[in-house]
Design a protein around this nucleic acid. Structure first.
Lengths: 211, 211
DNA sequence: GTCTATATGCCGATAGAC
DNA sequence: GTCTATCGGCATATAGAC
């Protein structure tokens, strides 16, 4: 317990390499080499490669989802206080903002965002199932609050629109790296606060689009 | 050249397994076993695993992009004939419809859609770079036509909104598999034509949202 | 062109000394 | 808790017979 803990060093290295090269393409050897620890220490501290991935996701997702839950509580309180449905923009802000602003409060979290963005794109694999397990019932709560916020949109339609919204969100999470091909007159460097507002403008307009 | 060609059998098997298990998690052994061909035939016909992926994507993406290009030509002709900007819904229909309706015309293409959906989510890897290479300049054309269709939206903003739209599209492409968790009163089975209209309603509303 | 057999190397996981 | 050494397996790729 001298330096940053061995356990933490492994988690940091795994987070980065899983994000950049994917879970399958990353070997335990690469992780332990980058972390400067022994190969066997991964199995000692975590038990297996799958369990390591689980721990990588859990470390950041747990506080993140606690924060999301708090924000949803607040949105609900405000809705009840004003006897109005919850505001759809506030609901989706609670969903996307804690993740996208994670970099500000947590210096090492940059790779985690990419990692989760990719986990959302994984079909069957360990990444997706571990992520879904840890998201728990929070997705249902977001869906139900979106339905309350937009009572004129049928549930079935809103389900798919929420699907589209998650697609935009996860695609944005994945796109830290500068796009290799930029059209003329377009810069790739925008501050995250502006980007969040752009995403919310876009998403809210799509969710409440006329049918 | 008796049965379906060895080359085609390999392409079909690789397409399915790459889509379901990802490129990295799929071995040449699994591919040749499913194709009922010899292990060595992959290297004989394609040269390497990377080159096989390239061929898998190219086989379907080339005619697909030719079709997209035709549709864009048509949208441009109609715009010129009416002396009006191109219609944004028609531009995006040209982008998404050829892919999403591929199943109807090409029986084996189901896995290809998932594969490309995942390629769009890969950050650095072979999948993404091969896909981008083959998309060529078509993305630029879509961007420029979207700008023409929505002259009141600044290019920089429209660039990001297009990013969000591609996120929704690729997320939809990836979601053949039934979602493990469905909210109450929501079914996952919708015909693709309806889904395309839902996606276009959502996307057009987002692209032309007030700023 | 298609096969068998194999070269060469990395993989995840573990045993056992310290 | 941390190390070395190694097991058993599967990976990609290729050499060479047919």
């Amino acid at each position: 317990m001298s330096q940053p803990d061995t356990k933490q060093r492994i988690l940091n290295a795994a987070e980065e390499l899983f994000a950049v090269h994917s879970f399958h393409a990353t070997s335990l050897r690469a992780i332990t080499q980058q972390a400067g620890v022994n190969l066997a220490s991964v199995n000692y501290h975590f038990g297996s490669k799958d369990a390591l991935l689980d721990a990588v996701i859990k470390r950041r997702l747990e506080p993140l989802n606690a924060r999301r839950s708090e924000l949803l509580d607040e949105v609900e309180r405000m809705a009840e206080a004003s006897s109005q449905p919850p505001e759809i923009r506030a609901v989706w802000r609670a969903f996307v903002e804690p993740t996208l602003l994670l970099r500000k409060t947590d210096a090492g979290a940059e790779y985690f965002i990419t990692l989760v963005g990719r986990a959302l794109a994984e079909p069957h694999g360990a990444e997706m199932s571990i992520f879904l397990k840890q998201m728990g019932s929070l997705m249902f709560r977001f869906f139900e609050m979106s339905c309350s916020a937009l009572p004129s949109i049928p549930r079935q339609l809103l389900f798919w629109r929420m699907h589209f919204a998650i697609g935009s969100f996860s695609h944005l999470m994945r796109s830290n790296e500068q796009s290799p091909l930029l059209p003329e007159g377009v810069s790739n460097t925008v501050d995250m606060e502006s980007l969040i507002e752009m995403l919310l403008d876009y998403t809210v307009a799509g969710l409440e689009a006329p049918q």
